[in-house]
Simulated scan of single mutants.
Amino acid sequence: MEFVMEKVKEVLMILPNLIGYMMEKLKEVLMVIPNFFGYLFGKLEEVLMILPNSIGYLLGKVKEVLMLLPDLIGYLMGKVKEMVMIFPNMGGYIMGKLKEVLMVLPNLGGYIMGKMKEMVMVVLDSVGHMMGKVKEVLENLVGYMVGKVNEMLVFLQKSNLIGYLMEKVKDVQMVFEKLVRYLMIKFEEEFPADTRAEQLHHLLVKYVIPIISLVILVWFLYYFWRCCWVCLQKVIECCGECLRFCWKCCFGVGQTTVKMMKAPGVEGLRIPRLPFEANPAAYFRSLRFPPLLPLSKPLLG
């Protein structure tokens, strides 16, 4: 508060001098104003003295223009008359040229139609020539293919390949029929009609259901191997790393040779410096999956 009062006193002491300075400047401005107005009035008198002469000059120029105006109007009227006199001749000239064009137009139309007919004829000839060539190529191609097919048929007839194949098909069919007949006989022998239902039920319970169960178990184990074994392996690896770290921390193994550092992002934890410097990205990536991964590879390398 005392500081503010001191500043107010300083301002009050300076204020009279400031007001005096402003009054002096105001007096100087008031002394200059009469001279300024006198200069303005002098210039205004000069302009008023020059103004009559300027108005007279302008009026003289207007009179000269008015005196020249009749001559200009007469000149323009003469030019208009000349154009009116020339216009009939120009109209006759234009009409003559138009008649000539109309006379030439039928001949031009006939010439254009003749050229169009010639172009159409040329196009038709070209298309006919192309169609002939395509027809020749197709006939040659079809003839070549038919000849090759005939050659193959002749070869098959001479070599009796089709007959041989048909005989082999018949042999296979006979063997298949014999096999089916033999299997049916064996089925009838092994499973008589009177005890067939009981034997099939016994076979189903004794062999089919265990085989299906074994297949399901194998499939489940394969699925477990594909999906869960990797995760289990990671968990076992992380547990092993944790045990190694606890062993080193508790028994002091390697504390004198391995340089340690503060773990970034984890308060109160120290990790080996060399593994972190070798692969810092792996350490920061392991922080996203606590609590196992941050304590495994980033800590011990």
Results as ranks from 00 to 15, higher is better:
Met113Glu: 01
Val137Ile: 01
Ile86Gly: 02
His129Asn: 04
Val149Lys: 04
Val47Ile: 07
Leu48Gln: 12
Gly147Cys: 01
Gly56Cys: 13
Met174Thr: 04
Leu293His: 02
Lys135Asp: 01
Ile112Pro: 00
Lys262Trp: 08
Ile14Lys: 11
Leu204Gly: 11
Met260Lys: 15
Met85Val: 02
Leu108Ala: 01
Leu300Asp: 06
Glu190Arg: 08
Leu76Thr: 03
Cys246Asp: 05
Met103Trp: 00
Gly252Gln: 09
Glu277Thr: 14
Phe224Met: 15
Val172Ser: 06
Ile86Ser: 05
Phe37Glu: 08
Ser54Val: 12
Asp171Gln: 06
Met166Thr: 07
Met145Leu: 06
Ala278Glu: 09
Lys27Asp: 04
Phe3Asp: 12
Lys43Met: 09
Lys7Trp: 08
Pro294Trp: 02
Ser54Glu: 15
Ile211Met: 12
Val146Asn: 10
Glu136Trp: 01
Ala193Thr: 09
Lys259Leu: 12
Arg196Lys: 03
Gln233Gly: 15
Met152Glu: 04
Gly265Glu: 13
Cys239Val: 13
Phe37Arg: 06
Gly92Leu: 02
Leu51Val: 14
Lys99Phe: 00
Phe3Thr: 12
Lys63Ala: 14
Arg285Phe: 06
Leu30Arg: 12
Leu58Cys: 13
Lys7Met: 11
Ile212Lys: 04
Ile55Arg: 04
Met13Gln: 14
Lys61Trp: 07
His202Ala: 10
Pro88Met: 04
Ala282Ser: 15
Met260Asp: 14
Ala281Gln: 13
Val172Gly: 05
Glu151Arg: 01
Leu243Asn: 05
Lys81Gln: 08
Lys43Phe: 08
His129Arg: 06
Val80Met: 04
Asn53Met: 08
Glu10Arg: 02
Met22Thr: 06
Val253Trp: 15
Tyr222Ser: 14
Gln233Ala: 11
Val32Thr: 05
Ala282Ile: 14
Gly252His: 05
Met5Phe: 08
Leu183His: 08
Tyr223Gly: 15
Leu66Tyr: 09
Thr256Lys: 15
Met166Glu: 02
Met49Val: 04
Met260Cys: 12
Val122Pro: 01
Met31Asn: 00
Lys297Pro: 10
Gly143Thr: 04
Tyr75Ser: 03
Lys259Ser: 11
